[in-house]
Each structure stands twice: as C-alpha cells, then as structure tokens.
C-alpha cells in the first residue's frame, strides 16, 4: 500500500454546530451531515502547520462538514469522517499536489495561517495578504500520544472518493467550549452563513509534533 506522509508541528481543529440544512448545501448528494443534535450538523475547521511533505513546508486551512464514516464489517471505526468542501494553502505546489492526488477542492489564491500559542491556547489567524478570513482559538486539555483513524471524502465530476488518514502525535481533546471562532467577510467563506454558525466549538482538538499519513485513495 502506498502511504503519503505529512509531518506537522501543529494540527488544530474545532467542531462548531451549524444548521443541518446549511450543511447539506455544502455536501454532494451521496453524503449526509452527521448531526450532533437535532437540526445541528458539524462545521469543522482544521489548520495545519506542515513541516515535512513531498511539496515542502506549508500551512493549510480545511473547511469541512462532518459526515458519518463509511463502515465495513470487520474494519476499524474511524474517529471522525470529514467532507472537506474547501481547502486553502499558502503555496501553489501544495495546492496542485492536493488537487491532483486527493481531489480536494481549493481556494485558488494563497491563504496564510498564523499560529500563536498563548497561555494554553492556540490562536489561529487565517488571512489573505492581511485581509482576514477567520480567527479560531482552541484550548489545550490533557496531552497524550494517539494514533487515530479518520476518513475524508472527496468528489469530482465523475467519481466519488474516500481516503483513510492516520493521525499520530501528541493529542489533546475536550468539550469545555472554551474556544472561539470569528468568520470574516471573505470570498473563501461565501458558501457559509456566518450568523448561523456557533461562535464557540463544542469540541476542540489539538495535535503537536505529529504525522498525518494518507492511505491510498479509494474510489467508492
């Protein structure tokens, strides 16, 4: 099996409730949003600071909707499954790589992620030549090593894809609702209705000094 690895210093993710009907608008027809409670789907924002990859170092912001994982008898249960509906990176090479290899939809201009640790919180500022896109903060909890399986779903005009992703590294996760999200008026967020997305996460995940390993892309 061909594995593709991406080393990172930080991977920060937060899950925010959004109306299910809005989440459905972001998904292809073959996927349904996973509801955290009735009428509330999950908008996931994940920021990476990649330090090692086939395309060098880069930062990445992933906007996704959480969906039910694809389970098969006898297989491991993924921790979560994502449909990344839009990805932003700060290098053309990383964009081209992710589009070609993983069929991930991208914002086609450079987008930067600034990471700043402050008093047990990671503050991520995403911007486009200093034009703000979003600000997110995630707070730490207890740290421990983990190696979790995730799934990501992609699609293009002809096919539907799935890839299994293993996340290995130092990991903190909690539901203390201590983080925050601020969405700005920016073309990257035009598919969203910021007023309908919670400004605080119900789940906060933070990984440090880890490795993201993609299995081979599967057509489903």
């Amino acid at each position: 099996m061909q594995l593709t690895k991406y080393g990172f210093s930080h991977a920060v993710s937060a899950f925010f409730e959004m109306p299910t009907e809005l989440a459905k608008n972001l998904l292809p027809r073959h996927l349904q949003p996973l509801e955290v409670q009735h009428g509330s789907a999950v908008f996931a924002v994940t920021a990476f600071d990649f330090t090692e990859s086939m395309v060098g170092t880069y930062t990445e912001i992933v906007l996704a909707v959480i969906v039910p994982p694809l389970l098969e008898a006898g297989q491991q249960f993924p921790k979560s499954a994502f449909y990344p509906y839009l990805v932003g990176t700060n290098t053309p090479e990383s964009r081209a790589h992710a589009i070609e290899r993983w069929h991930l939809p991208h914002h086609m201009a450079d987008v930067d992620c600034d990471f700043a640790v402050e008093g047990g919180a990671m503050n991520v500022r995403v911007h486009d030549n200093d034009k703000p896109i979003l600000e997110m903060s995630v707070h730490e909890h207890e740290w421990g090593k983990t190696n979790d399986l995730y799934q990501a779903f992609m699609t293009d005009e002809q096919k539907r894809y799935k890839v299994d992703i293993h996340m290995n590294g130092e990991f903190s996760e909690h539901e203390e609702e201590s983080g925050s999200l601020k969405l700005h008026n920016h073309p990257m967020l035009e598919k969203l209705e910021p007023a309908e997305i919670n400004t605080y996460p119900f789940r906060e995940l933070w990984m440090k000094q880890g490795m993201q390993t993609f299995n081979e892309l599967e057509t489903i």
């Binding site: 593709t4 297989q75 000094q209």
Partner: peptide
C-alpha cells in the same frame, strides 16, 4: 518533546499490508 523528523524522500512509502495500517477486526 522531540519533534518527528523524517527525510522528505520517506514521505511517500510503500508498506506491507500488515504493518498496522491494515483495518482492525471486530476483535481488535
């Protein structure tokens, strides 16, 4: 903590099916 560092050429590798990435079973 010691950061994970790997040479760039090792970031795309072939591995045997049973190296731990193989899906776990119900028993697992």
């Amino acid at each position: 903590m010691k950061p994970l560092r790997q040479p760039a050429e090792n970031l795309e590798t072939s591995v045997p099916e049973d190296n731990g990435t193989k899906p776990a079973t119900d028993q697992d």
